[in-house]
Design a protein around this nucleic acid. Structure first.
Lengths: 180, 180
DNA sequence: ATTTTTACTTACCGGTTGGTAAATTCTAAT
DNA sequence: ATTAGAATTTACCAACCGGTAAGTAAAAAT
């Protein structure tokens, strides 16, 4: 693994534990086993490190969610596979999930993170498209707002100490959007 | 308004905009129009300021949500009144809502905030009780996990720029938990 | 009028912050 | 072997961080 990658992973781990403002560049350096100045050789600023962590996190999440269901013909299996994959990701890829979860509110409201906000909204739009597709198959209630459902799904996917609670949350959402 | 109150409100406003780690004690002082040392006359530490902001925020939210519905006999009106009051609070008391929303993930996962985590879980329990009550009135699906529903409701109550989206999110949740 | 208590300010502390310039070491091509 | 460029370290900066000690002004109690 090359140096830039080590720095990026150390940053991701640190941000997931303490959030962006709770982590110093020096701490990232120590976790990566490099000197702080070397971080500024690979990245122009702390903000840009976070931007790369954020983009990568969402891309990995998208890949995990959409790659496996892309060849599924049955919409019902597709949607359920999607939600199952989401639970699986939050459970087994805690670092990435926590990065998103810890900084989502700041990303969505602070002006300095406009780019990251748009990246997150793009992710939400993909979920919204999946919901919208369900209307054509008569599987999703017609009056559902796809973007609202996407927000609800993504916003409720937070890791919890008690196991099984995520499945129960999802079952509520499924009953809320799925016919029958 | 006395000085301690001014400090507390300045802190609340600042935390809601930038989160706990994004705000310095000096910034709180400047917003409150006092010197930093005076803050340490009224509060022992920055952590304790936030604890007071957090406790107050949840108490005000609880008051707003439960006070108005306490005399409602019909469970259906009660639950709908509760959700309507929640939307109203998030829409009109943005400062408090954003404090909770921005720091929820950190409070729930970082060891230093054990007290605040318990305070938030107490709040969730009250919502869970309301859900559980609905089962006795045959209004809520029996297989619903009240704590999961409480998490879903509270976690989805985030302010959005687009108006009306909160109502749509809640309508999904209602269909997910309410019979008929 | 004097003392005591409360409210508030000034001035500072050691440590950390994000970030930079310059020097050094390593690597690969010539 | 020399050189050039990439990778990494050392040393530093001004600004800021949370927090404190000592003093002053105002108000309340005696």
């Amino acid at each position: 693994m090359d140096t830039k990658e080590r720095i990026l992973r150390a940053a991701m781990q640190a941000f997931s534990e303490k959030g962006f403002n709770g982590v110093s560049v020096d701490e990232i350096a120590k976790r990566a086993g490099v000197k702080k100045a070397l971080i500024y050789y690979y990245f122009p600023s702390k903000d840009k490190i976070f931007k790369e962590v954020w983009d990568r996190s969402l891309s990995e999440l998208e890949k995990h969610l959409f790659d496996e269901i892309e060849n599924e013909k049955s919409y019902m299996k597709k949607l359920k596979g999607f939600l199952k994959a989401y639970i699986d990701f939050v459970t087994n890829r805690k670092v990435i999930s926590e990065v998103i979860n810890k900084e989502r509110a700041s990303v969505m409201s602070e002006d300095k993170w406009t780019d990251l906000k748009e990246r997150y909204e793009g992710f939400l739009s993909k979920i919204a498209s999946l919901i919208d597709e369900g209307k054509r198959y008569n599987a999703i209630y017609e009056d559902i707002d796809p973007m609202a459902a996407a927000n609800l799904i993504s916003g409720s996917m937070v890791h919890s100490e008690k196991p099984g609670i995520l499945e129960k949350v999802i079952s509520v959402i499924m009953r809320g959007i799925l016919k029958g």
